[in-house]
Write a protein that binds this DNA or RNA. Structure first.
Length: 286
DNA sequence: CACACGTGGTG
DNA sequence: TCACCAAGTGT
């Protein structure tokens, strides 16, 4: 089972820049932040520019947080840019400018949760960790549980199952981690899986059962149009595109509903994604 | 534990 | 067209 996925990966892995042997732990860490809830295709270019401009954590830490937010562009969830900047500061101050190697230390960094800590430790340092992202959860749900989709929220059962699949040898475990993710991203996809190209289709409980459609209510809502999120995005876009402080009038012009605009503005200020007031004008954080 | 948090591609 | 989906984290 594992061996076949490793063989498949050797033949079909995408040539992503953060997977190249010369990729640094920092470059891998940046990619992981950008890839949180964001497709690979959209990350490629911003990642290249980011690591070119800030090749090490101290380089980013020395820049204003607002520049990180600006460089984040339209990747979405701009708080990730802020967290990455804060993580760079912590690495600079507490770890001599080097990305920590232990899962526990990584976990203490802003924006680094269970998945990202495991991913960095595994991909950058070849350690043995359960790397349980949405791809792997779906792959395991189908292969081992016979379900079309994993549970809505991660369970201890999933972690236990993932641990059983994880090879003992660290290097092999690290390849399995990236390979099982890649299988989920390229073959065992959410919408229309390409089972005919799956290296372990004959071992897949779900496929053997005839690919039953998910039973429960499942799916969650996602609506975006007219939400606070869209409003925040509109406000922040104004600041990103301006080199000077933005007047209140310009912010008012980008969103018609005043109460929602006020709420979004307040939340952006509270998050530290922007600074200022009506008197001084508004800007990305220094 | 449910919800907030961006954005754009796609079937 | 439009709802779903994309390498999650923090509260």
């Amino acid at each position: 089972m594992v061996g076949r996925v490793l063989d498949w990966y050797a033949d079909h892995a995408r040539d992503l820049p953060w997977r190249r042997p010369e990729a640094t732990a920092w470059e891998i860490m940046v990619s992981e932040f950008m890839l949180q809830q964001t497709p690979v295709a959209r990350v490629l270019e911003p990642w290249r520019q980011w690591v070119d401009r800030w090749p090490t954590p101290p380089d980013l830490a020395a820049a204003p947080a607002g520049e990180a937010v600006r460089a984040w562009g339209r990747l979405g969830y701009p708080r990730r840019a802020l967290r990455l900047h804060r993580a760079a500061e912590a690495i600079t101050d507490l770890h001599g400018g080097h990305v920590p190697t232990s899962h526990a230390e990584l976990l203490r960094l802003p924006g680094v949760g269970s998945y990202t800590a495991a991913a960095i430790a595994s991909f950058a340092h070849r350690q043995r960790h359960v790397v349980l992202d949405t791809n792997v959860r779906r792959v395991l749900a189908r292969i081992a549980s016979g379900e079309a989709y994993p549970p809505v929220s991660a369970t201890v059962a999933e972690t236990r199952m993932a641990t059983e699949f994880l090879p003992e040898e660290p290097t092999r475990a690290a390849v399995w981690a990236v390979a099982s993710m890649e299988l989920g991203a390229l073959v065992c996809t959410a919408r229309t899986p390409a089972c005919e190209r799956c290296p372990v289709v004959d071992l897949c409980t779900w496929h053997t059962a005839g690919c039953p459609t998910s039973t429960g209510p499942g799916r969650r809502r996602q609506t975006y149009e007219g939400t606070d999120r869209q409003c925040r995005g509109a406000l922040l876009a104004v600041l990103r595109s301006s080199d000077i402080r933005v007047d209140r009038i310009e912010l008012d012009a980008c969103w018609p509903a005043a109460p929602q605009r006020e709420r979004a503005l307040a939340s952006l200020l509270a998050d530290g994604l922007m600074v200022g007031d009506d008197t001084t004008g508004y800007a990305l954080p220094g």
